[in-house]
């Protein structure tokens, strides 16, 4: 059910968020006045042309960067849990740790009991198909496997919300489809609130409950679209649904103008 607009209480509130950078020609506005409420349990997608500030927005939600104006509020249910865990774009798992130690990273830092770490990490390695590779080092793994480790690490940390910054953008089409399905399967277990950044319209429609389309720089919220597909979803069956094509087409209509604007600015 796409319930984001209705019933569920808000989990994340962004109020008038803005981010300005100092750069050579002067001040650059990366994000301008973004206000949005994200419902608890919502798989929230942010789509926008490259350079629209969507990664900056996510880093602000993660607390890795400070906004120039506005506020981020995450409504916490359990103070003992970390607020967020991020799955980064590209290789972010530590090359000097085994798959197991990478997945256990957040729990070990928090000093969680060893038996609990064994149980939780064992569970997520199993869910990501990595059990066999628990003692392997990242350089022995393919790109898709590494990103599975990053997924296991974020889920094992058991945060209030999950943040994902184009986690599959470096993967080939086949791996991407596989990982999208696996991510949905793992996410279904607890349905934590997710904020997922992508430049792929297909990915947004496949994974999300709600999609925010951003304008080219400065990034603003241009449109908000609810995705009607029921869960659990099959990534492949979804594509046969006539509504899928219609939705992708509609979002592209909103996005096209922004992509062209971003390109025009890049060529100046």
């Amino acid at each position: 059910m796409s319930d984001a607009a209705s019933g569920a209480p808000a989990k994340i509130r962004l109020r008038h968020l803005a981010k300005r950078f100092r750069s050579r020609p002067g001040m650059v506005t990366a994000i301008d006045d973004v206000s949005v409420e994200i419902a608890a349990g919502c798989f929230f997608m942010i789509v926008g042309p490259s350079g629209c500030g969507k990664t900056t927005l996510l880093r602000i939600i993660a607390g890795l960067e400070q906004p120039s104006a506005g506020s981020v509020e995450v409504l916490r249910r359990d103070r003992a849990k970390p607020v967020n865990s991020m799955i980064f774009q590209g290789d972010s798992i530590f090359p000097w740790m085994t798959v197991w130690d990478n997945a256990a990273y957040g729990l070990v830092l928090r000093g969680v009991a060893r038996s609990q770490i064994r149980e939780v990490v064992g569970h997520y390695l199993e869910r990501t198909g990595l059990t066999r590779f628990a003692d392997a080092y990242p350089h022995q793994l393919s790109g898709g496997m590494k990103q599975r480790v990053a997924i296991a690490r974020a889920f094992a940390n058991d945060p209030e919300i999950l943040l994902m910054d184009e986690p599959f953008s470096a993967l080939d089409e086949q791996n991407k489809t596989l990982l999208q399905q696996e991510l949905l399967r793992i996410w279904e277990e607890h349905k934590k609130t997710v904020v997922f950044i992508t430049h792929s319209v297909d990915e947004a429609v496949t994974l999300g409950d709600r999609i925010m389309i951003m304008t080219a720089q400065p990034g603003r919220a241009k449109a908000m679209i609810d995705v009607p597909f029921a869960r659990p979803r099959s990534v492949l069956d979804l594509r046969a649904d006539p509504r899928y094509g219609a939705l992708v087409h509609r979002i592209w209509g909103d996005l096209r103008e922004e992509v062209q604007r971003a390109r025009a600015e890049a060529h100046q």
Partner: peptide, 11 residues
């Protein structure tokens, strides 16, 4: 990125 991970995991 590894230092970002450290910060994100509140090291």
């Amino acid at each position: 990125i590894y230092l970002d991970v450290g910060r994100n995991y509140r090291a």
